[in-house]
Design a protein around this nucleic acid. Structure first.
Lengths: 264, 264
DNA sequence: CGCACTTGTATGGTTTGTAATACCGGTTTA
DNA sequence: TAAACCGGTATTACAAACCATACAAGTGCG
């Protein structure tokens, strides 16, 4: 298997560091030879990455002096969706953002999904892939799996305009519980294309299983988010006495105050 | 800029499709020539990708017959730490895992951290970098920033053995609130080395600001987690009536039951 | 100035990924 | 059985990416 372009890895890594505040706007960045030894590549490769950063307007190259950071991408970014209990804000977002339906089929679900939802292997599910945009910028790539019996109660058109929760609850499903798991993955070509990022970028990954009051799975979500446009924020309060102190999530509908405290 | 290995793109794309249910377990996958034309690469390139998939145990290659899907990824994942309210389980983990102190200095904090903690730019903070391992596998890379006045109440040795929360509360600090932000980043050379992953791998990223009862920042955490060994899990319950339904986090100390439902 | 450091440029050679083509052998189906 | 498809293998060729090196030129500082 090919190793994957090294120059691109250097480029992405440096871009990360800049947007994460490792290198601030003043006069910084290690020298080319230093970077080359850190990344264990040749200086030519480092230069390719630096040229790309320069073309992006992130660094300015000064012969004899060094490379200075002259802009930060995510600083003035239209950041971010934020949520505490995750779901409610997603529902609210449904009104402020646009969605695009990429694919829509009925098929049997992958085993691990069928198993998690409590379906027999081979049961048909509706598989829909959507992309959500804010200000014409795609920030999330969602693939949902819904048992066919439930899914037939709404149309392909509904899906493009209305959040799935609303559709499900309108269909008479009583949503009771959800369990979700957050992780990170690399952008595969298809989602990279849909999210308008480079292949190999880091993406926030979310898997969610939604169950009704009878414990049957009604939705399984596989989501990918652009980390520069989307973060999962939450605030916790320390409660309890003495040796029995523990953390409790703060239920904050209006979390505007938190946005500034922990940037991203 | 290099384009990034084609064979790898085909590999990732196919893997995505398999795990997303586009190709199910039966007898499928288009022929090699068909795939080559779809991806607009040569047949040799497709074959490389298929060989890699075969080595992963995802497809079985049958001469004369075709390629059949024989497994789905993420099934046998060696998952994972899991937590709901994040903090308590971290404290529990402190006893089951080992930690290694990589660096320990007093220095001025980066601008954006000083600002978030409400410090004057230039105020010295203790900067400690630790790696946590489970079964000798490093899974998290933590960098903590603590104001020097507070940090002097415990020793460098304490830090390697005891969770920071315990140390802080033992020092008389009244921890009141925390706000955190979850995202994804690429592995930079230094953390990649510490976490034993390739440079450019995807990592789960967590930033956390902890404040005391007077609203002063007492700890700022920058954490990186290996997505294959660590996920953030949580369960939510749907409560409320009719139009006022919303999600509420389930406070689950014992979340063993959730582990199986949403794998990773 | 002169030294130490930086980026800019040029050269040559090696490695790697990719393409195009041809041929062999197994599988399926008419 | 024979034709049509499939994957397995091999060859040749080309281009891109990468590396190592050396040297020129710009900058900052004592």
């Amino acid at each position: 298997m090919p190793e994957g372009a090294k120059a691109q890895r250097v480029y992405l890594s440096l871009r990360e560091d800049i947007s994460n505040g490792v290198y601030t706007l003043g006069q910084n960045l290690p020298g080319e030879v230093k970077l080359a030894s850190v990344f264990e590549v040749s200086r030519v490769t480092v230069r390719r990455a630096l040229h790309a950063l320069c073309a992006d307007g992130l660094v300015e190259r000064r012969a004899g002096s060094g490379n200075v950071v002259c802009n930060s991408p995510s600083l003035n970014a239209p950041v971010a969706m934020n949520f505490n209990t995750l779901m409610p804000q997603v529902a609210e977002m449904g009104r402020n953002t646009t969605a695009k339906l990429l694919s829509f089929t009925y098929n049997k679900a992958p085993d691990y999904i069928a198993q998690a939802m409590g379906l027999a292997t081979g049961d048909p599910v509706q598989i829909a892939t959507r992309v959500r945009l804010t200000d014409d910028q795609p920030f999330s790539h969602l693939t949902t799996y819904v048992p066919q019996a439930i899914a037939t109660s709404y149309s392909e058109n509904d899906l493009a305009n209305t959040p799935l929760f609303t559709l499900l609850e309108r269909s008479g499903v009583t949503i009771a519980q959800a369990s979700q798991s957050v992780s990170a993955t690399l952008a595969s070509p298809s989602v990279a294309d849909a999210l308008d990022v480079q292949v190999g970028s880091a993406l926030l990954s979310l898997q969610r299983l939604v169950c009704d009051d009878k414990g049957r799975g009604v939705e399984y979500l596989v989501a990918r988010y652009r980390p520069d446009l989307f973060t999962i924020d939450m605030t916790l309060a320390r409660v309890g006495e003495e040796s029995n102190r523990y953390w409790e999530p703060t239920i904050a509908r209006d979390t505007a105050a938190n946005k500034k405290s922990v940037s991203a």
